[in-house]
Design a protein around this nucleic acid. Structure first.
Length: 189
DNA sequence: AGCACGATCTGA
DNA sequence: CAGATCGTGCTA
């Protein structure tokens, strides 16, 4: 399958967030592939977006967003969770797409073993994805186009009709226009 | 140096 | 609905 190249990410963030639905996420650990189809994303649109980490300028945490597209922006929050984002647009235009849910395809048993708490849905939620796929801060800044450790591939075409847009989750602190923006995208089952 | 809080998850 | 749990960024 074709690995998504830098050009894929170097576009309008809302376009990329929609286009990511149906793509396959691949995490290779010790030669074993954990994979899944992306079903839910959220767009974070740069300095102007009061919900985006880059809103208050460049810091050591969000620096990766200010770099070239096609890199992973992984950060730590709530004292216990990691989040996976994919950097979009161009350098100095700090935008990214948060991966919120995935349907596992391969390596499901391995993902179960990684779960600290078992017996729940595997990968509905940004923090659970990172846990299941073994993604932590060591992958912050990772180049998603080099085909090692972590990358994305073409997989399934999701027709525009099957895409639902809603407001983003967990950003009540943002200004109204950003809080209400329909920048969360879900692939209809 | 101190402090408030977070793009969440879980179990009650 | 509250508790877990700590890195980060802001203030001083």
């Amino acid at each position: 399958m074709k690995i998504l190249d830098r050009k894929f990410y170097r576009r309008d963030t809302l376009q990329v967030a929609r286009a990511l639905l149906g793509k396959k996420l691949v995490r290779r650990i010790n030669g074993l592939d954990l994979t899944g189809v992306i079903l839910e994303t959220e767009a974070y649109c740069g300095r102007e977006d009061s919900a985006c980490h880059a809103h208050r300028g460049k810091t050591s945490r969000n620096a990766v967003m200010f770099g070239e597209p096609g890199h992973a922006y992984v950060y730590f929050t709530y004292g216990m969770h990691y989040m996976l984002n994919l950097v979009t647009e161009g350098a100095e235009n700090p935008c990214a797409v948060l991966i919120r849910s995935i349907l596992p395809l391969a390596g499901i048993e391995e993902m179960e073993n990684r779960r600290k708490r078992k017996g729940h849905e595997l990968t509905d939620g940004p923090a659970k994805i990172c846990q299941a796929f073994g993604i932590d801060k060591s992958l912050n800044g990772w180049d998603l186009t080099c085909g090692k450790q972590l990358w994305l591939e073409d997989y399934k075409k999701i027709p525009a009709k099957s895409v639902i847009a809603t407001p983003r989750i967990g950003i009540d602190y943002a200004q109204k226009e950003h809080r209400n923006a329909l920048w969360r995208f879900l692939a209809k089952i």
